[in-house]
Simulated assay, not measured.
Amino acid sequence: MIQRIQTIYLLLTAIVSSGLIFVFNLWTNSEGTLVYATDNLISLGLFIASAVLALVSIFMYSNRKLQFVLGRLNIILNFFLLGFFVYQSLNLSGETNVSEKGIGMFLPIISIVLLVLANKAIKKDEDLVKSVDRLR
């Protein structure tokens, strides 16, 4: 059952959360240096936790309800990560530390969209199994 569409969505989420954080910067500070997720321990931990949760969710294909719950937890985790980025960018007066936002700040949004699509496919599978059980 690993060949399902939600597995692809969850794998893409894991790639976005664990691989693209090393490619795209989060912001450029006032000195002009690029800040990546590896430079901030909180953002790195949240990104890695999101990737691990997505990978664990892939192998929970036999328990679709738990897979759905793990997807929801991952969405909440990505909202916390997005909120942390908004806090970082708005907390500093005059943007003294965050002078230019990078595309890495949008990675949690991409993860959230992929997780919503995965949860939609998981729900569709669960409804299909329930409808087949009614016919027996």
Rank of each mutant, 00 (worst) to 15 (best):
I2D: 02
R4M: 02
I5R: 08
I5Q: 07
Q6Y: 10
Q6M: 02
Y9F: 14
L10H: 03
L11H: 00
T13S: 10
S18M: 15
L20P: 01
N25L: 13
T28V: 15
T28A: 04
S30P: 02
T33Y: 12
T33N: 12
L34R: 05
L34S: 10
Y36L: 06
A37P: 00
T38K: 15
D39C: 07
L41F: 09
S43D: 07
L46M: 15
V52F: 11
V56I: 15
S57A: 15
I58P: 01
F59R: 11
F59P: 03
Y61L: 07
R64H: 05
K65N: 01
L66H: 09
I75T: 06
I75Q: 09
L77T: 05
L77E: 07
L77K: 06
F79C: 12
F80V: 10
F85G: 09
S89V: 13
L90M: 11
N91I: 06
L92D: 15
S93I: 08
T96M: 08
N97P: 00
N97Y: 14
V98D: 04
E100A: 13
G104D: 02
M105N: 00
M105E: 11
L107V: 04
I109G: 01
I110R: 04
S111W: 01
S111D: 10
V113Y: 02
V113C: 02
V113S: 03
A118H: 02
K120I: 11
A121K: 14
I122Y: 08
I122C: 04
D125K: 01
R134N: 13
L135F: 10
L135D: 10
